[in-house]
């Protein structure tokens, strides 16, 4: 049965996932779709910012989000990992 330790792990996990998904929503649906015309007033180089977010920037942020997730989860796993059972796939 799940103990208190597992609950804490799960809660930390949910917090991490929700905050990353908030950024995910903000850059794609926010900057790339809802606010795109507003951001288009800002220019850098040959790009309008809204257009760039929609076709380039959001994708780059997605990569960063997954990398942050990998890194944080590795640390979270290390902190809460229990010894005892062995990994299913030693075969």
């Amino acid at each position: 049965m799940p103990g208190r330790n597992d609950d804490a792990y799960w809660k930390a996990n949910i917090r991490l996932v929700l905050s990353l998904l908030a950024v995910w929503f903000l850059v794609s649906f926010g900057c790339g779709i809802l606010l795109v015309d507003l951001l288009d007033n800002i220019r850098f180089g040959g790009f309008k910012l809204g257009f760039w977010m929609a076709q380039q920037g959001s994708i780059l942020v997605f990569i960063v989000l997954i990398l942050v997730y990998i890194n944080r989860m590795d640390k979270l796993d290390a902190r809460y990992r229990r010894s005892g059972a062995d990994r299913e796939d030693s075969a």
């Binding site: 795109v36 929609a54 997605f62 989000l65």
Partner: peptide, 15 residues
């Protein structure tokens, strides 16, 4: 610009 739905849709799904 509307082509962004393919770009964001097909990569954002990986998140």
């Amino acid at each position: 610009r509307d082509g962004a739905f393919y770009l964001m849709g097909w990569t954002g799904g990986y998140v």
